[in-house]
Amino acid sequence: MLSFLSIPSLPLASLEVGQHFYWQLGGLKVHGQVFIVSWIVIAILVVASLLATRNIQRIPQGIQNFMEYAFEFVRDIARNQLGEKEYRPWLPFIGTLFLFIFVSNWSGALVPWKLLKLPEGELAAPTNDINTTVALALLVSLAYFYAGFRKKGLGYFAKYIQPTPVLLPIAILEDFTKPLSLSFRLFGNILADELVVAVLVLLVPLFVPLPVMLLGLFTSAIQALVFSTLAGAYIHEALEGHGEEHEEHA
């Protein structure tokens, strides 16, 4: 299916979509290029955190200052969604979601992975792979179910038939559309960005793709923000219950 998009006569760039660098792990196939980049992302995050918290000063300096800014940013996301009382236990999850997606997206846009040749496929942002985004979205689903059960036990299911049992199918459908839209939004945005850049590079290799790349950086950051904000909103919804109860708390 790829043949009509990649033009073989132009040696400057070519589009590779849907090709993966497979690893065999005891009968299981995994996408090697996704894991390589995600390990780099994880290493960046862990090293930056270690450097920032190794020697915490009262008056922050250098990398500690920067990481404190990042921390306060994700804390504000979690606090705005979950409220002052509830956000603390969920901060690591939502914060890590944001940081991982953000660094992944920007690593895909900023690092010239094309210089590293793989036998098959190419290195790109981990969020460029549907497996990653679906994994993250399913984790968000699990997280809000866990939050609901933790808070209300089996009473959590009451929200499906409140205010009226007529809406039961829609309420159940919502649980499927949430991870679906979360994962497809992130996947589609990142993939679309990389495809647009690739097509432009294919047509005009110099300078013209730069504004689109900048737009891609912006979109990637916004998508990380949207993903973590929505995760927080879903968890909050599970914690608070439905509709009218929410109004009381607000």
Binding site: K29, H31, F35, N131, T132, V134, A135, L136, L138, L139
Partner: peptide
């Protein structure tokens, strides 16, 4: 494929 659960675990 197995990328999905492994990525979830890794996350």
């Amino acid at each position: 494929d197995a990328t999905l659960p492994l990525m979830a675990l890794q996350f």
